[in-house]
């Protein structure tokens, strides 16, 4: 019943990983930092190019389409649209490589 060999779900049934349903507040705060870091990289690139009176389409398009961290809704920061999930939303941390991808936009109305 107690001790290192007690019967728990992962021990008796083999592979069982439990991913919490929600992000913790520390995960959310690190997520905000990452979003802000990407915003900072984009603004550095565009201001450096603007000094030489240049720009690239990729950055212009990003600035036009992507909201910055402060403009985003909490819903979009920490969760993502998924058509297979009940109520169409799952936690951002269920996205593969979620700490290294830019996922900011979701279908309108969801």
């Amino acid at each position: 019943m107690f001790g290192p060999f007690r019967l728990t779900n992962p021990l008796s049934g083999g592979l069982l990983w439990k991913i919490p349903f929600r992000l913790s507040r520390h995960q959310k705060s690190r997520q905000r930092l990452r979003l802000r870091h990407v915003d900072h990289v984009i603004s550095t690139l565009s201001s450096a190019l603007a000094k030489q009176a240049k720009s690239i389409r990729k950055i212009e398009r990003w600035k036009e389409v992507m909201p910055i961290e402060q403009e985003m809704l909490a819903k979009d920061k920490y969760s993502v649209f998924d058509r297979k999930v009940k109520r169409y939303r799952k936690g951002m941390h269920k996205v593969p490589k979620w700490t290294r991808v830019s996922q900011r936009l979701n279908p309108p109305g969801f």
């Binding site: 870091h37 450096a48 690239i56 990729k58």
Partner: peptide, 21 residues
């Protein structure tokens, strides 16, 4: 050097790097 080519390369790896001018 600050060129559009390099900016495009950084854009592809923007989540992985820290950039300053």
């Amino acid at each position: 050097p600050v060129t559009p080519d390099v900016a495009g390369q950084i854009m592809r790896v923007k989540e992985l790097v820290d950039v300053s001018e």
